[in-house]
């Protein structure tokens, strides 16, 4: 079973603890003859964990099972120490959930909606009103909180969904595609907000997404699901590994000079991928650096940048899915 162990890589990352928030072992879920999840195993610990996978990979089904909306057909699933299907109420009152869709009741004011969901999760009326307002302010909708949700932009509705997920102070929030429909600036802002909620308030986050770069940017760990199976799980550092997969050389040269460098490298037996002025020379030892440097020196081409190429989450994802 793959294990996601949070190892903060920067100062603002969350202090890791060993408690398992979600533990899935050989989970299978079928809808009639269709098998949505055939063998999913992972462990999620404190911090922000990305649930990655292509559209239709089974991420939303997995989230649904974590919340207790769907029963596990076989295997075992524990959420905050309990079986979410049989102990659903006890589990769900400690969770926040932001669904994927944007079609919230259009005539309801954002503040009323968030307050209602907070009350549903057991907050007394007065406290729910205060915290709904606070959550909406935190999510950047302080001035807009009395607007009907039908008049809000997609970005604002995404923020309302986040506010309703955290207003009742859950231990863990599940965010299903929280940046869906957002433009790049709104996306950055939403990811910053998610990071802030996790680091500032210690709320653990499971973020379902098919966008690798946003998981790479904001998450401490990731679970990659493909074709109904766990294909990889772990901290981002574990997933990417510490080694390199090559050297990136950016040349200060014209196409003819670039061709001669490439020819020289290939004649030395190196595997080279060309992307304009950028060459990726494959190999994981220091001799690749020397090879690239020597090829450039021999052809008289200037080097604009020379760096190691590390595995990205995208590389891991593609490699995992074969």
């Amino acid at each position: 079973m793959a294990t996601a162990t949070t190892v903060p890589s920067t100062a603002d990352k969350i202090v890791p603890v060993t408690d398992s928030l979600v533990s899935a072992t050989n989970v299978v879920k079928r809808y009639g003859t269709f098998t949505a999840l055939s063998d999913v195993s992972f462990e999620i610990r404190h911090g922000i964990t990305g649930l990655l996978g292509a559209n239709g990979a089974g991420k939303t089904t997995m989230l649904g099972m974590i919340i207790g909306l769907h029963e596990v057909d076989s295997g075992s699933l524990r959420v905050l120490g309990s079986d979410p299907w049989n102990a659903g109420v006890a589990v769900r009152e400690r969770l926040g959930y932001s669904p994927e869709h944007h079609t919230l009741p259009g005539d309801l004011q954002a503040n009323d909606f968030v307050r209602h969901i907070a009350e549903l999760h057991g907050l007394p009326k007065a406290e729910a009103a205060t915290r709904a307002s606070d959550a909406l302010w935190l999510c950047g909708l302080g001035e807009e909180r009395f607007r009907p949700m039908g008049t809000m932009s997609t970005g604002q509705r995404q923020r309302v969904k986040l506010a309703q997920a955290i207003a009742h102070d859950p231990e863990m929030v599940l965010l299903d595609e929280p940046t869906d429909g957002l433009d790049p600036l709104q996306r950055d802002s939403m990811l910053d907000l998610i990071r802030h909620i996790a680091t500032e308030f210690g709320i653990d986050v499971i973020l379902s997404s098919h966008l690798l770069d946003e998981v790479e940017r904001v998450c401490d760990a990731a679970v990659i699901i493909g074709e109904g199976r766990t294909v990889a799980a772990g901290t981002l550092d574990e997933l990417r590994g510490t080694g390199t997969i090559g050297v990136v050389v950016e040349l200060d040269a014209d196409p003819t000079q670039i061709s001669s460098v490439v020819e020289r490298l290939r004649s030395s037996g190196a595997q080279v991928n060309v992307d304009g002025r950028r060459l990726v020379v494959e190999g994981d030892d220091d001799s690749v650096f020397d090879l690239a440097r020597d090829a450039c020196a021999a052809t008289g081409v200037g080097i604009a940048r020379l760096s190691r190429k590390r595995l990205s989450l995208e590389d891991v994802f593609i490699e995992s899915l074969g």
Binding site: I67, G68, L69, G88, V89, R92, E93, L95, Y97, P99, H101, T103, L104, P105, I117, L120, H121, G122, Q164, L174
Partner: peptide, 18 residues
Amino acid sequence: CTDRRTGLLGVYLASPLN
């Protein structure tokens, strides 16, 4: 119908209600 159509049913079922 409105709860199902707007997806609010999912939000309700993610609360202590079943």
